[in-house]
Computed example of a mutant assay.
Amino acid sequence: MIGLFAIDAEQRKLAVELSAKLGRDTMVGDGPVHQVVHRMWTKLGSAVLLMPIGAAVRTIAPMLVQDESSPAVVCVTEGFVVVLAGGSAGGANALADRIAEVLGLTMVASTGSDNTGDTVLEQLVDQLDATVDGDIAECAAALLDGEPIRLLNPMGFALPPMPDNVGHSNGARWTIVIDDRLATQISDGSELLRIVPRTLVVGVGASKGVSGDEVSSVLSMLEWDFGLDLRAVRAFASIDLKAREAGVLQALEDWNFWHGQGSVGEDPPTLLTYPAETLSTVDVPNPSAVVQRETGTPSVAEAAALYAAAEMAQGRPVELVVPKAKGENVTVAAVRIKP
């Protein structure tokens, strides 16, 4: 069975039209894409996702396995039909070619092995648990055509094997930047594809009764004052006293609307909370006697971010990149999990 899954009403209309042309052994999923795909996954021979590639990759990544049980997966997006999994052995290349012909689009075939079927860019996005900013389908097409591709990896992430045409070529039409910061600027006029790995844990401390707008305003300082890409946030952390603080929860919901993937049914980054006795054991650069008296720990934002990041890092180093950015009733801190 071929399942077709659309991100919005316009794409769903296209999915219904495409289903009629692909034959009787098709179904069009109804409901939030993330949940429907996960529910139908084991029943599918092929899946066609009508959505941006980054969202499609994050939807299917938790379910891909190295055997023949996974369906072939094709993504229809921005004028391209891109093979995400299944390759030639799984039938995804043939299905993508058929869809491209029906819709008059350009097909981007898989160059991965028949076991995974992923293009190298999708492998990279999946490996880094990243958000994509830019036209990944067009960049993938250029890569497959053998064009020189410049790759900038200033943070030193481990990468999957890259084709020979990917390197530090000056004058390349495409530049790929892997970074959790906004600072990288390309001055030579090349097309830019930014891959934003989820490396950041943001600690939040707030007064009782704080408004969501106050929390959101201080969170925005991470971008405007410190140059961090807020799509790189992997988790938020705080003291357990704030687990149900309405203003904090509202701000995180707003954060997901603007920076997350809530539109495709994904949950926002988790709010991790810890008791005061746990946070009080964390060595921080900016302890506060006032916070100690009010909460039982000399630090909330810095300590929570450092503690949560260390737990998630699984032995990798972490660094405090934003120590204690303060508003009137809110304090935030950001910790990076290093490669």
Rank of each mutant, 00 (worst) to 15 (best):
G54A: 15
E277I: 00
E78T: 11
G54C: 00
A20C: 02
V37Q: 01
L18G: 09
L4M: 04
E302D: 00
M312G: 00
L222V: 03
T42M: 11
D8L: 05
I99N: 10
E223F: 01
F157D: 15
F257Y: 12
R24H: 06
S299L: 03
V322I: 04
E266M: 15
G205A: 03
L64N: 10
P268E: 13
I239A: 06
V282N: 03
A9L: 12
D97I: 11
A61C: 08
L44K: 01
I7M: 12
I239Q: 04
L4T: 00
G146R: 07
V166H: 13
T106W: 11
S19I: 05
T111H: 14
E17T: 10
E266P: 07
F157W: 14
V291K: 06
E294K: 09
D164A: 15
R24Q: 07
V108S: 13
A309N: 05
S19M: 05
A183D: 11
V332A: 07
K324N: 08
L249G: 02
L124Q: 09
W258C: 04
L44W: 09
I149Q: 12
A15Q: 02
R98H: 08
I337D: 02
R234F: 04
A183F: 04
P323T: 04
R336G: 07
D283T: 12
L18H: 02
A172T: 04
D126L: 01
V102T: 07
D30H: 03
Q66M: 13
K13C: 02
E253N: 03
E294N: 07
V330F: 13
W41M: 00
A235E: 06
D145T: 08
V196D: 01
H259F: 15
A333R: 03
S217C: 11
D129W: 01
F236L: 07
A56S: 15
S46F: 14
L103W: 11
G3D: 10
E147M: 12
H168W: 08
G54E: 15
H38K: 13
E10R: 14
E10W: 04
V33H: 05
K208W: 07
V177P: 05
P160V: 04
P317K: 00
R194V: 00
T331F: 12
M27G: 08
G79P: 14
K21E: 15
G29V: 03
V82H: 13
L249T: 06
Q123V: 10
G86H: 06
G91K: 09
Q35L: 09
A243E: 13
I195F: 03
S263Y: 10
G262I: 01
D118N: 02
A308K: 07
N256M: 10
E328Q: 09
E223P: 09
A303N: 00
G156F: 11
I149W: 09
L200S: 03
E319V: 08
T331C: 02
D267V: 11
E17C: 01
E253I: 01
R336C: 11
V204N: 05
D30Q: 14
D114M: 03
A130R: 04
W255M: 05
A289P: 10
M162C: 02
A9G: 14
L105R: 04
S69N: 15
A137P: 08
E253W: 03
E10I: 13
I60L: 14
